[in-house]
Design a protein around this nucleic acid. Sequence first.
RNA 1: GGCCUGUUGGUCAAGCGGCUAAGACGCCGCCCUCUCAAGGCGGAAACAUGGGUUCGAUUCCCGUACGGGUCACCA
Length: 561
Amino acid sequence: MDYNYLAELLYPNIKTLPEDMEARYPRRELPEGAKVTRFAPSPTGFVHFGGLFPSTVGERLAHQSGGVFYLRIEDTDAKREVEGAAEGLIKTLATYGINFDEGAILDENGNISDHGIYGPYKQSQRAEIYQTYAKQLVREGKAYPCFTTEEELDELAQVNKKEELKNTDWQAEAEAKRAEMLARLEFTIEEVEEHLKAGHPFVLRILALGDPEKKMKFTDLVKGNIDVPENDEDFVLLKSDGIPTYHFAHAVDDHLMGTTHVIRGEEWLPSLPKHIQLFAALGFKLPKYMHIAQIMKLDEQGNKKKLSKRDMGANMDDYTRMGYCPEAVCEYIMTLLNSNYEEWHMQNPDKPYTDFPFNIKKMSTSGCLFDFDKLNDVSKNVISRMDAKAVTDKVTEWALAFDPEFGKLLAADPAFAEKIFAIGRGGKKPRKDLATWADAKPYMGFFYDELFAFEDAIPDNFTKDDIKVTLDKFIATYDASDDMNVWFDKVKAIADELGFASDMKAYKADPSAFKGSVADISMFIRVAVTGKMNAPDLYTVMQILGKDRTIARINAMIATL
RNA sequence: GGCCUGUUGGUCAAGCGGCUAAGACGCCGCCCUCUCAAGGCGGAAACAUGGGUUCGAUUCCCGUACGGGUCACCA
């Protein structure tokens, strides 16, 4: 077989050679140890947690080493492409601190355009490059055309599905039949010419001569030493439209673009044999690989499953909706990525997570379950460190988008809102009430008359008389200019008068000697003023609310008794 | 089913041949306290399993069980 002739037959329009490409895309000149990583999404939807995870690794590794982090768009499957998805991905990533140095990134007008000399960065625009290498593989007898149609292949799959019911060895069966159909190199040039003349489409397959029984040792930077069998699958390099599959595009692009570390989910591990063979066939140096563990969720049976697109917590835009701040999500991701992150953070509470020395060796090798409890805890801490102004701004912004009525209330008087969010903020032990911006409303909504309601009732083991007298006396003595101690002394005085213990220690020593304690007296007032059993410091609440509204609410309560 | 891969408390995880097997989240209790949110202190809770190797295995090897991933002209 004359492979040169075959190559011309198959790709007559390709005049370039691999050397031309090597010349067009020179090796990068970077300092020793600099890592070149990339995020290479297919524009089929939103960014999900499983995508943010590896991209965070890539971003950290590149920027921590003085390297390059670039974005390549893997739009080789036109059927699955979603309009505007790429733009959405980039924007979402940016909110999580994932910024690119190079690649298909957004310009000032919000349009995607190429930045960098290794473009185009959209794979759909790189057909000539791929075909140049493909043609070379054909010349070398390493790849061959296959005219078996998709329909014929599908038919085989159907046959094998039926056999699956009674036969355990269904996949082996399928492979055997498929191998027959493919015919590999047992075709003649004349047959190819006939097919082409008839306009039959073909795919280009690699010729796989590996023996899967033979394993080689391979070192993955995350997984460690793993066994990789030789590839024996004649996988598709170029689809019938001349566009490459992931495998071929990965080899050509990551070689030409100078990727040093390929970071991807562990679901790619099974196709590693393909990539190893392909890089060898093309004469490319293999990059380092990092197959990182998947994020899991629990299914109904209690088994772990890969967190998929439709799952709660998958879509990053959901986090925005739920009111999580990006910093919290990033920190949570860091805790999952590097188990010593928390320790570092406790020692460096004021440093941003980007100062943390991210370490590949500390990465977990097995998949973890997504844990909202942990995220909430991280988030509470993040928010507790913000100042009142920042919290006010962020809650307002969130509410305006997702809870407009609440948002308008906040926006109508930012100074008032800020006073509320300043309660217990600052200092060594700040309050930690908010895990999400959405928590703000239940926490402090009662400050607004529009949202105020008696949510909690006073337990009925107290008499209405005691409650009424308490409230009456409180109004009678309330002076907004009292300081906190004076204010509380007055509350205690009411407790004493009504036979409630003003001293908690005395009450605990002998509860039966009292009707209750000053805690209960405070509770009566608290429910009247906030509508709830639980609220931040009552004195401060009244200060912010103002004397008139405080009294008005207490009177409203009295009227119901 | 084949292949790859994993298995330390409920969750995330330290550990890297000898330890009373860290820590964080969650849970429970106590303290503090006008309630809550915190904070402090304490508690329950784990090396999947069977064989080896070894003076000694959570750590090394083999098997078993149970997870996970994958087997497209998708990435």
